[in-house]
Amino acid sequence: MIPKVMPPLAELTVLVTRPAAQAAGLCEQMQRNGAATIAFPAVEIEPVTAEAARGHDLIIFVSVNAVAHGVHLIEKGPTTRIAAIGKATAAALKETSLPADIVPEAGFNSEALLAHPDLTLPDGAKVLIVRGSSGRELMQETFTARGFIVETRDVYRRIRPSIDDATRDALETRWQLEGIDVVTATSIETLHNLIGMLSERGRALLRETTLLVASRRIAEAAQAAGLNGTLIVANGADDVSMIGALARWRTRARAA
């Protein structure tokens, strides 16, 4: 008899904290791999008004949300190159009239994009960064230090969702009685929002729960916030990276 092969995420319950519009895809993929999922958005994306942009040598989109809320503002010139901070952002751009020319193979963050060998520009080049408000300044500072003319377009902002006590209490009771094995966090802001949305009971549960994060920076923020559970660090915030990291951790845990 051929032994039954368990799906890689079987018997795991995962709390997915992405924005509602983006949580569905990750939940579906995790379910296909055997996990039970609970969608609990800890961040909402709100578009903001921004001016149109033209005449840039390089345009960088820092997230899928930057594409969704900013691509309509961009007029690409004949020599303009488009850069995406990661593969999920590149996939979003592929569905528009602005496919990415430059995408990091791994890392999926500002550092990885800045280190890309094709990210070369002539002196005095104009760079546009399409992003959310309150984002990291590393790219802007780095390009400015290299002597380029840098502009930004903040096309969305992240806000903490409002939650009623009944919804919060139902989640925390489910967590306490039946358990949640893993909580996701794809940004520092999402992590901080989640902590603020929970009661002291929920924060106590979170402190001991395994956390699946999209970068080392988020892992460091979790440790600084006093979260003591196991940290699983993915190579990026896209579905493939998050599920892959979780599946590898699960396989190692079963073998131990």
Rank of each mutant, 00 (worst) to 15 (best):
R136F: 01
L138C: 02
D123R: 10
G55P: 08
T17A: 12
T184V: 03
Q176S: 14
R216L: 06
P19M: 10
A221F: 08
D181A: 13
A115Y: 01
A21H: 15
R32Q: 15
A36Q: 14
G132E: 04
L171H: 05
E28Q: 15
T152D: 02
N65W: 01
E75D: 11
R18L: 10
A185Q: 01
M1E: 12
V14Q: 06
Q22Y: 02
T190W: 03
E95A: 15
M139W: 02
N109I: 02
A10M: 12
V16F: 10
T120Y: 01
A24W: 03
S215G: 06
W249A: 13
T190L: 05
W175G: 09
L191G: 11
G107I: 06
G107D: 05
G202I: 11
R203K: 13
L194I: 09
E51W: 00
V5Q: 14
E220R: 11
A20S: 15
R158P: 04
E105T: 10
A115Q: 12
P122I: 06
F40E: 06
V127S: 05
S162R: 11
I38P: 06
E28W: 11
P78H: 03
E189Y: 02
V182E: 03
E28T: 14
K4R: 14
A204Y: 01
L211T: 10
A214Y: 02
T186E: 01
H192D: 09
V127F: 04
T89Q: 07
A214P: 01
I159Y: 00
A222G: 14
